[in-house]
């Protein structure tokens, strides 16, 4: 019997107690390391957890738990497994097109604009927004707060270095996003990597913030949080929407991912859809 079959056989035997063990493992991760995945999508967590066991040739959840408790570098790896770091520049170009059409005219009426990119991962979407704001003549009026709970991601975002191969793909997205400039003006390429222009970085503040456990941001004009909440269960989604609602100024804007919505949350009545298709919502003045 090869090792993967053996693990599968053991997993099968363990199945009945798997849920309990998963819960207990997540409690350990929270208590020892402060990262709370207990209200993440169960299917997502379980898939990542079983995947980690196969990769690290651990034959039981108890062994996984033991390793997490006693080996902090392994624990960091496990936390990374559960966090989402897949992103790209100008992902869903139509969203940026809609942002230019519908949101930019509103932003132009405000003297100062605070934008919060919540769950920004490695920063690709933050730079996309910086480019858009620059092209719309708004960059000097904005302060962008880019936050994530993963310090490695934030570090990467702050450095703003991406592979040239990816940049080529991003250039196509950029063109489809209502581009008003030349994409190559925004980075400097050398060998296999491209570093984002310092003029884009000037007004971006990178910070650690955990949507699950940390407090709100005050007086924010725009919140961008795309494809983060899909990883949470309904209760946690609801909690984070309360956080967003209290962070936004009246008339402020909330931008969600393609497949996300405010439906089924307590906060749905506090917003009107500015673009239903592109998931851009405006907080009502009267609540």
């Amino acid at each position: 019997m090869d090792s993967s079959k053996k693990i599968d056989a053991i997993l099968e035997a363990e199945t009945s107690t798997l849920d309990y063990l998963t819960e207990s493992l997540l409690s350990v991760v929270f208590e020892k390391y402060g990262y709370d995945f207990r209200n993440y999508s169960k299917a997502h967590v379980k898939r990542r957890l079983l995947n980690r066991m196969r990769l690290s040739k651990l034959e039981s959840i108890s062994m996984l738990q033991h390793q997490i408790m006693h080996d902090s570098s392994f624990a960091i790896q496990f936390i990374k497994d559960l966090s989402i770091s897949v992103t790209e520049m100008f992902r869903d170009p139509d969203f940026y097109l809609a942002f230019r059409d519908r949101v930019v005219p509103i932003l132009k009426t405000w003297p100062y604009i605070k934008i919060w990119h919540a769950g920004c991962s490695t920063g690709e979407e933050v730079y996309s927004m910086a480019i858009l704001l620059k092209e719309e003549g708004l960059y000097n009026r904005v302060q962008i707060y880019a936050t994530d709970f993963n310090n490695d991601s934030i570090k990467q975002g702050k450095e703003g270095i991406y592979s040239v191969e990816n940049i080529k793909k991003y250039a196509r997205n950029y063109q489809a996003s209502g581009a008003k400039g030349t994409f190559s003006d925004y980075y400097h390429a050398q060998y296999d990597s491209a570093i984002m222009a310092p003029s884009l970085k000037k007004n971006i503040v990178w910070a650690n913030h955990n949507l699950v456990t940390d407090a709100d941001f005050t007086e924010t004009q725009v919140i961008v949080c795309r494809n983060v909440l899909i990883y949470f269960n309904k209760e946690l989604q609801n909690k984070v929407h309360h956080l967003f609602n209290s962070s936004l100024v009246k008339g402020g804007l909330l931008c969600l991912g393609d497949k996300e919505s405010l439906q089924f949350t307590d906060c749905s009545h506090n917003y009107e859809a500015l673009s239903k298709k592109h998931k851009i919502f405006k907080k009502l003045y009267l609540q």
Binding site: D19, S41, K42, A43, H44, I84, V86, T87, N227, I230, Y231, G257, K259
Partner: peptide, 11 residues
């Protein structure tokens, strides 16, 4: 999901 709801991810 175990509660028979659907989750979409961008993994």
């Amino acid at each position: 999901e175990p509660d028979l709801t659907l989750t979409l991810t961008i993994d």
